[in-house]
Design a protein around this nucleic acid. Structure first.
Lengths: 71, 71
DNA sequence: CACTTAATGATCTTCTGAAGATCATATTAG
DNA sequence: CTAATATGATCTTCAGAAGATCATTAAGTG
C-alpha cells in the first residue's frame, strides 16, 4: 500500500491539522484524511502544496510500503 | 508543479499505454492522462500499481518541480 | 471552578475528475 | 489493401475531495 507520512512529519514539526490546512490552503478534511491515512485519492495540487510547505519531495510524503502481497 | 515521469519511464522500457493499462489493471484513460501529464488527481491505488509494475518508488514517478513560483 | 476559544471528528451537499465504455482515427503487420 | 492493434476523443457513471456546518474535546484565562 501507499503510506502517507504526513502524521509523522507533522508530529516532528509539532504542527496541528489546522495549521497545515491554513498554511497550505488545503481543505481541513483533506488534511485530516491524509493524517489518518484514510484518503484513497489525492489532488496533485494538494501534494504540491504539502511538499512546498514541508520543503520535501513527493517521495518523503508518500512511500510504497513493500508488503508481501500485491495489495 | 508535480511532474509525472510516466512517459519517461515508459519510453525507457519501450512500453505502450495499452501495455501499462493491461498489466497494471489501471484504466487506459488514466494512464493516458498521466502519460500526457493532464491528470490533476490520482488514486493512491493507481500510484501503487504503477510503482509495483515499474518496481520503483513514489518519488521516482512523481517529482516536485521546483519552479520559482508557488504555482 | 466556570467561561471562552481553538482544534478535532463527524456529517452533509456540491462538484470535480477518474473509471469505464465506446467510436473514430492513426499505426503496424500480414 | 485488409485486419488487428494502439491511441485520442468523448460521453456517462460514480467515488471522493472540497466546502460548510455542528458536536465534542482540549487548552487557556478569569
Amino acid at each position: 500500500m501507499i503510506k502517507c507520512h504526513l502524521s509523522k512529519i507533522m508530529g516532528e514539526r509539532k504542527l496541528k491539522i489546522v495549521d497545515v490546512a491554513r498554511d497550505t490552503g488545503i481543505n481541513r478534511g483533506t488534511i485530516t484524511r491524509l493524517y489518518h491515512e484514510t484518503a484513497s485519492r489525492i489532488e496533485l495540487e494538494a501534494v504540491e502544496a504539502l511538499c512546498r510547505y514541508f520543503d520535501c519531495q513527493v517521495g518523503d510524503l508518500f512511500e510504497l510500503q513493500v508488503d508481501n502481497d500485491t495489495d
